[in-house]
Design a protein around this nucleic acid. Structure first.
Length: 355
DNA sequence: AAGCGGGCCAACCGCACGAAG
DNA sequence: GCTTCGTGCGGTTGGCCCGCT
């Protein structure tokens, strides 16, 4: 389709607006409204194109514009909305009273995008890196996130925690994936063994939930004892409907508890308590950031972006407790078979790390 | 103090889409 | 059904500001 620009006339002024122009525009709109932006500059005595007037009004002069820094609440909301809607700035702005799409877009590009990148989350897809060959970069990612230290901003803390947990998740995933050819039956889904969502679109909200889950592991709140199949989710109510039942877990899939704990605990400082309760991000629950979990499956349910956004906007802070289910039942952390060499696996990982 | 580089943000540009004729 | 108009939207640009050397 397309059409010629509204301001073909080369004589119209461009560039920054002067206070006099602002006053003319405001005075005119207050008196007459802005029924036709094309006619407005003529009538208001402005040497601008209508489009420029509209932008100036909507992005700067409108009386209900909120100026100043974004609050933590706004920041989190933008993250959530962007993960659900993508670059739909105007839609996002409707959830942030007083903020314009342009302002949010700028804030995203200059602040939030970089924050996500810094913690290893793709700001476009909200996915963590999924490729196995990225395994080699994870130790450095962990080190980098550790260096971020105890950040004052709860959102930063949450992101750092995401990166930390995601990195461990990746190491674990990589380990299992390496194991598959040698010790697991063909077609075994490594992630199902862990009771985690299968790879795919991975949003911040998924991250938060998996944080939640992995923290359970890290903190030892999920009891996995010797020779013990996990009969039920831990106190966190972990849910993964895709998880095979324990009866389906192959004996070969056993991972020694010591190894899991070593991987999950290494360098972990229990930083979940860093999260500011005022921010609404609480650990291990992340209560106000959680997607509704009782009825949805992370990453695997197809929802239109709009519905998805509406869904979590509606249920963000009022989620039902997760239904206890078979989640993590496939996680068998009992002792390995005697003839199985975990050292070999570790050696493989070291090799992968070095390559 | 001057030059440089990067960050930030207001404003611009071009396309898309719905309404009206 | 088509063309034109008006507006909305998202991506990009350009200039200002600030910190660093």
């Amino acid at each position: 389709m397309g059409r010629s620009p509204c301001c073909d006339e080369s004589h119209v002024k461009k560039g920054p607006w002067t206070p006099e122009e602002d006053k003319k525009l405001v005075d005119y709109i207050q008196l007459h409204g802005h029924r036709s932006w094309r006619e407005l500059p003529k009538n208001a005595g402005l040497n601008r194109c209508g489009k420029s007037c509209r932008l100036r009004w909507t992005n700067y002069l409108r009386p209900d514009i909120k100026r100043g820094n974004f609050s933590e609440e706004e920041e989190r909301l933008i993250l959530q909305l962007h993960s659900a809607l993508g670059n739909k700035w105007s839609k996002i702005s409707t959830h942030l009273p007083g903020r314009t799409d342009n302002e949010i877009k700028n804030y995203w590009n200059t602040h939030l995008r970089k924050k996500l990148l810094r913690v290893g989350i793709d700001p476009v897809t909200h996915q963590r890196a999924t490729d196995l060959d990225l395994l080699s970069s994870l130790p450095s990612l962990l080190a980098a996130t550790a260096k971020l230290g105890n950040l004052a901003n709860p959102v930063d803390n949450a992101l750092r925690l995401h990166a930390d947990v995601v990195a461990r998740y990746q190491m674990l995933k990589g380990l299992i994936t390496l194991m598959i050819p040698s010790v697991l039956p063909p077609n075994t889904d490594a992630m199902n063994l862990l009771g985690l969502a299968s790879p795919g679109r991975y949003q911040v909200n998924d991250l938060l939930r998996q944080n939640h889950q992995l923290e359970g592991l890290v903190n030892g709140s999920l009891a996995f004892g010797q020779d013990q199949m996990l009969p039920a989710p831990g106190p966190l109510g972990l849910v993964n409907p895709n998880t095979p039942s324990s009866s389906q877990a192959s004996p070969e899939s056993r991972i020694p508890q010591e190894m899991m704990m070593m991987m999950m605990k290494s360098n972990y400082d229990g930083s979940s308590t860093l999260i500011d309760s005022n921010s609404g991000i609480t650990t291990p629950g992340f209560s106000c950031l959680d997607m509704p979990t009782a009825h949805s499956t992370p990453s695997s349910v197809s929802i239109s972006p709009e519905n998805e956004a509406a869904d979590f906007m509606q249920g963000a802070c009022g989620t039902n407790a997760s239904t206890p289910s078979q989640g993590w039942q496939g996680l068998n952390l009992a002792e390995p078979d005697d003839d199985f060499s975990w050292k070999d696996i570790l050696d493989q990982i070291c090799w992968a790390d070095e390559s």
